[in-house]
């Protein structure tokens, strides 16, 4: 478990996308704290703004559509949003590192694995000699439990299985010993056995290096396996956050409750799976009040008029729901 020493503090972050169709409020006032050595899960449906949030933290949002309008992202006392692009480039990968949703975007098909890993080390440690770089590369491959790492250096990405490719991407992301690692849906495309191995690998790396991890997913199984705390996102905002057991045992937001209920279970045979009818609101013109109200069984008049701010319901547990006492 974490020692509760904050590494990354995000406050009031707002990232909007300006397109021909209007303004998409992809990240619309998000605040959370990430502690040393912990894994924070960010869960939410497709389109809820998870990737846009992650990209905002490392300032890699799509140009020119996206603009970070407000908020701060403080890493070890420095607000990343105020840094020059040059200083930000230095920190990216070394202090804060990201595994993209699509692993193909992170690997270049025309270079060998060894080349790409060496490049990743060289960017942050230009003073190292070739032999020292090679040693660090092999060390990274050992950290991600790559079988026969020396043999892999001369492979091209297409010669590797999906699971091995992911280890390479993982090795690149941790090659400079970052303080914070952001992994955007790293296991969604994998089959169950590979997924489980990958999540356990992340934990081992964390135990060895103390890196704090933000794990983005839409699957509560991933959260149950790998996270210490959870933030649930809905339509650009965090609607509930808290320690993982607290969220599983005492969810205090109807959306979290519904997400937990719709998971397929191996142990019970149900005649019908509970599902959430309807779909998330458009982020171009989100409804006033609680954004979940149109799909919520508990919705009352106040819910459609006034936005419920996050409020503490237990130590470290916050929810944004007017009727949280009636949930569960």
């Amino acid at each position: 478990m974490s020692t509760m020493e904050p590494v990354l503090t995000v406050d009031g972050l707002r990232t909007h996308l300006f397109t021909r169709w209007g303004t998409t409020r992809a990240v619309d006032g998000v605040s959370f704290t990430l502690h040393r050595g912990e894994t924070l899960g960010i869960v939410g449906e497709s389109g809820s703004g998870k990737s846009m949030l992650a990209l905002s933290l490392v300032r890699l949002t799509p140009e020119p559509a996206a603009r970070i309008l407000a908020g701060s992202v403080v890493l070890d006392g420095t607000d990343l949003l105020t840094l020059s692009e040059k200083r930000m480039r230095k920190l990216r990968g070394s202090a804060i590192s990201m595994i993209l949703q699509d692993p193909h975007q992170s690997l270049n098909p025309v270079f060998t694995v060894g080349n790409q890993l060496a490049e990743a080390v060289h960017v942050h440690r230009p003073e190292l000699a070739a032999a020292a770089v090679r040693e660090r590369v092999l060390d990274g491959l050992r950290k991600v439990r790559m079988p026969a790492p020396e043999r892999r250096l001369r492979d091209y990405p297409h010669e590797l299985s999906g699971g091995m490719k992911q280890r390479i991407v993982g090795a690149m992301a941790i090659s400079a010993d970052p303080r914070v690692l952001i992994a955007d849906e790293p296991t969604t495309a994998l089959d169950v056995t590979t997924q489980q191995r990958y999540l356990r690998l992340l934990r081992e790396i964390q135990r060895e290096t103390g890196v704090a991890i933000i794990l983005i997913t839409h699957d509560f199984g991933v959260v149950a396996e790998a996270c210490d705390r959870v933030a649930v996102m809905y339509a650009g905002r965090i609607v509930e956050q808290g320690p993982v057991r607290e969220i599983f045992d005492r969810p205090r937001h109807p959306y979290t409750r519904a997400l937990l209920d719709s998971r397929p279970r191996r142990d019970v045979r149900l005649d019908r799976l509970p599902s959430i009818e309807g779909s998330p609101p458009s982020l171009v013109d989100p409804p006033p009040g609680c954004r979940f109200a149109p799909r919520c069984r508990l919705a009352a008049e106040r819910c459609t008029a006034e936005y419920p701010e996050l409020t503490a319901v237990a130590p470290g547990h916050e929810t944004a729901c007017w009727r949280w006492e009636e949930v569960s």
């Binding site: 079988p147 056995t193 997924q195 057991r245 998971r263 191996r266």
Partner: peptide
């Protein structure tokens, strides 16, 4: 093995990793 790989329904159901051959 496929059943063992199903992700837990609750954090209390986490199991220690098995060292079964991967590839």
């Amino acid at each position: 093995a496929l059943f063992d790989a199903i992700l837990p329904a609750h954090p209390d159901d986490r199991r220690p990793g098995s060292d079964a051959a991967d590839e």
